[in-house]
Design a protein around this nucleic acid. Structure first.
Length: 239
DNA sequence: ACATTAATTATGT
DNA sequence: ACATAATTAATGT
């Protein structure tokens, strides 16, 4: 299930797309046509796929790995807006009525993506029934999530925000291991602080406290949540 | 209730 | 050895 770095060429067959929401209503012929226009690309971890403000010349589908949508403030501070996991479209500026990318996309792991020129977006939407509606559903879901996060930021305390961030991570990008749920990719305290609007120090303190009480375990750049329920309690605790 | 600064230690290449 | 990551304490708002 890991993309073998050596295999330069990726086999593109319709089963890759058939189960994904934007394509689920399409027949085999349509999917083969779409695939024929796609370009495959592999990225290492920690590189940018596209940058905020650049002309949105292509849109992307994440086949394997994780990508973060990141915004950079004028003084160089990063804010991690959201994580994109395999099967999701991203860089879909056209769906938002934009000509430029609204955020920078940075790979969190080694990734495999498909991409198409943005110029064929309108044709896609018109020709393939369900493509547009399904992607708008996905976009709506993301906006909903971001709205929730705004409320979190404004109303919750840092401890609760970090707890929420961890819960989202294990829900969206976690896998079961013997002693809990581990986050799929390497993540630093700095990353978590960028997701929660705090400092790496505060994150560090919280995590070591939670580690002591057995809620989480963390090795270098790896975090496993042993007691998700306790995190839920922490995330909603009254002060 | 949190950030900032700075000093110290651990960990991966 | 070197850079990056993580912890910890002290001090500030």
């Amino acid at each position: 299930m890991q993309a073998s770095p050596s295999s330069r060429h990726v086999r593109l067959d319709e089963s890759l797309l058939a189960d994904l929401p934007p394509f689920s209503k399409l027949d085999g012929l349509a999917i083969r046509n779409i695939l024929a226009k796609a370009t495959t690309h592999r990225f290492d971890a920690g590189v940018s796929v596209f940058e905020e403000g650049n002309a949105a010349d292509r849109f992307y589908l994440l086949l394997d790995g994780y990508v973060r949508a990141v915004r950079i403030t004028p003084d160089g501070d990063q804010v991690i807006a959201l994580h994109i996991s395999a099967g999701q479209l991203f860089g879909i500026a056209k769906a938002l009525g934009r000509e430029t990318y609204p955020a920078t996309a940075i790979t969190a792991t080694e990734t495999l993506v498909l991409s198409w020129p943005t110029s064929i977006w309108d044709d896609f939407s018109a020709r393939y029934d369900g493509f547009a509606t399904e992607t708008y559903k996905a976009v709506g879901k993301r906006i909903g999530e971001m709205n929730n996060r705004i409320v979190e930021m404004a109303t919750l305390h840092v401890e609760q925000r970090i707890a929420c961030a961890l819960l989202r991570l294990i829900n969206q990008t976690g896998h079961k291991v013997s002693d809990g749920i581990e986050i799929d990719f390497q993540i630093t305290r700095q990353d978590l602080s960028e997701m929660t609007g705090t400092t790496l120090h505060t994150v560090s303190r919280m995590l070591s406290a939670w580690e002591k009480s057995g809620v989480i375990k963390s090795r270098h750049k790896k975090i496993t949540v042993c007691d998700p329920h306790q995190l839920v309690v922490l995330s909603t605790a009254r002060v």
